[in-house]
Write a protein that binds this DNA or RNA. Structure first.
Lengths: 116, 116
DNA sequence: CATTTAGTTTGCCAAATGGAATAGCTTTGT
DNA sequence: ACAAAGCTATTCCATTTGGCAAACTAAATG
């Protein structure tokens, strides 16, 4: 069992599953107990708990048990880190497409000059 | 071998590995041949090619072979989809923390009024 | 105290991953 | 024609999923 995870590895890994994304989507609106989180899914509790454990190991959620109820909430840092990484990438590819657009425009105006 | 992947499953899955993220980071700056992509990594080509295949199956990159060289480039749609999902989640949790902040302020001004 | 409720633990399974190693197979360059 | 370059295919391995079922613990509730 690997315990170390770079933040981005952890975030993307945890989000690669639709069940886990749905849990995150629920939790960004506020904390919830396991029971309520599990309800929408057509799967046994043990299976569902595996997803919660992965989310918690990957640092996307935290939880605390009071009485017999475990309440979960989201940890936003990892999500924010993932979003940051993606937006950096977008800036890079946009810079490139911008340069390309600029180049095409330059070529077009040259053609016009040549034709004139 | 599962061939279907919802777009977000695919994107997050592909990005959950540091090698694959590094490849994406390289490709957002422009296309590159396999050789050049593989160079920074301390791993055999066959192992590296597995990552490329995963990236391509997951729709994050495309490639074409000309002569003996395969050139790869990034497909930005999946990245954009992942970023969108994350920014939706952020909006939701920010809305919540904003409401919380507002609530706290309200309580504070009430305390002040009570005190006054 | 008996019973539901809410989680937890354990064991099982098939499939996918991430890596290594080796041996091909096309194209290019000399 | 031959060698090097650039990828591909195949096989192997330990680990991690994602799901199941069944038994178990602990806390509320009537």
């Amino acid at each position: 069992m690997e315990n170390y995870y770079a933040p981005l590895d952890a975030a993307f890994h945890a989000l690669a599953d639709p069940t886990r994304r749905a849990v995150v989507s629920r939790l960004v609106k506020g904390p919830a107990p396991v029971k309520e989180l599990a309800e929408p899914f057509d799967m046994g509790l043990p299976s569902f708990m595996k997803h919660l454990r992965i989310l918690e190991n990957d640092g996307l959620i935290s939880s605390q048990k009071v009485g017999r109820v475990r309440t979960c909430w989201v940890n936003t840092e990892r999500l924010a880190a993932a979003e940051s990484w993606l937006s950096e990438q977008r800036e890079l590819w946009q810079a490139r497409t911008d340069r390309l657009a600029e180049y095409v425009e330059t070529q077009m105006s040259r053609s016009v000059e040549d034709a004139g």
